[in-house]
Amino acid sequence: MNRNRPHAFKQTQLRTRVRLTSGSVLLIVVLMILGGMYLAIGANVAGAGRQVMLLETRRAELQRSNAEFTAKLADETTIDKLWERASALGFRPATPDDIEYLVIDGYIPPAPFVAPRPLTSYFNRQGALSPAYTETMVDWAERWLGIGN
């Protein structure tokens, strides 16, 4: 029995070392998995962020393009240009003598012009993006534990 004692000590050291090593490896693996997940989520968020930026840029480009078309259309329909084109087609302004007035019972005059609403005001875009992209781990933990807002 006494002869076996040193061996037992050695086995104990080995077991401890194996346990320590496997524990460390496990910890490293867990950390790597967590790190990998973090990186993957980070990459997804960055990708989505990039996509949002591209869409915002595209939206701004389209708005500028629309504004340019509006400007061109407005330029083509100014009173001066319409007057020129009408004159070129042989029209002239009517005088009171040219007009015959009729009484039309029940005539409803056209509704007054209503300007379009400002473009960026149709809806509030805040919150249109999934919270999956903005929720932090602390937010998640709070939600999971039912604390916070």
Binding site: V45, A46, V52, P118, S121, L129, Y133
Partner: peptide, 13 residues
């Protein structure tokens, strides 16, 4: 990193 967040629209004129 780039944030995945839509920026708010400023109050329109």
């Amino acid at each position: 990193p780039i944030e995945a967040r839509l920026q708010p629209d400023p109050p329109a004129g």
